[in-house]
């Protein structure tokens, strides 16, 4: 069960906002985290507290395929991203590296900055402890649940390759 305060963002948050390309000459998660949202929310990297949650509008993570974006969010301590919808490469990347993401149009519309959320990832239920509202999110297909529960794509693949040399 995750619990954290909310950082609020709007629609079409692109990966250049999450981590501008000028910082992509490194793969160090701590450096990426230090520059996360630097152009659009310079206070984010300084003020974010581990466990906090991002709530955003539609098409979160659009643009570049840079995995540095979910890596930066995860390294900054973000425990979960909730959005009305996700851009597809960001969606893959988040699942592949084990950053929890949830889709909920209602939560994206109603949750406010600073609200305290509780998230049950297994059930896909978001509870807004500030407003008392409860949101049921779109459940993941079984394969993706398997990926998430296994800690991402690499542990999943390692297991698969160990079980079958022909893969």
């Amino acid at each position: 069960m995750l619990k954290g305060k909310v950082w609020r963002f709007g629609a079409d948050v692109d990966t250049d906002m999450i981590i501008p390309a000028r910082y992509l000459n490194t793969t160090d998660p701590a450096v990426l985290a230090a520059h996360c949202f630097t152009d659009v929310a310079p206070e984010f990297a300084r003020q974010v507290v581990p466990g906090e949650i991002i709530v955003a509008g539609k098409n979160f993570g659009c643009g570049s395929s840079r995995e540095h974006a979910p890596i930066a969010l995860k390294a900054a301590g973000i425990s979960c991203v909730i959005a009305a919808s996700f851009a597809r490469i960001f969606y893959r990347n988040a699942l592949n590296i084990g950053l929890p993401i949830l889709e909920s149009e209602a939560a994206a519309e109603e949750v406010k900055a600073g609200d305290l959320l509780q998230v049950d990832l297994a059930e896909g239920v978001i509870t807004n402890l500030t407003s008392g509202r409860v949101y049921q999110t779109t459940p993941f297909p079984p394969f993706m649940r398997e990926l998430i529960n296994g800690g991402g794509l690499i542990p999943y693949l390692r297991q698969k390759l160990a079980g079958n040399q022909e893969v």
Partner: peptide, 10 residues
């Protein structure tokens, strides 16, 4: 189609 780095590794 575009994917991420972990997909590329796999």
């Amino acid at each position: 189609t575009g994917v991420g780095s972990t997909d590329l590794a796999a």
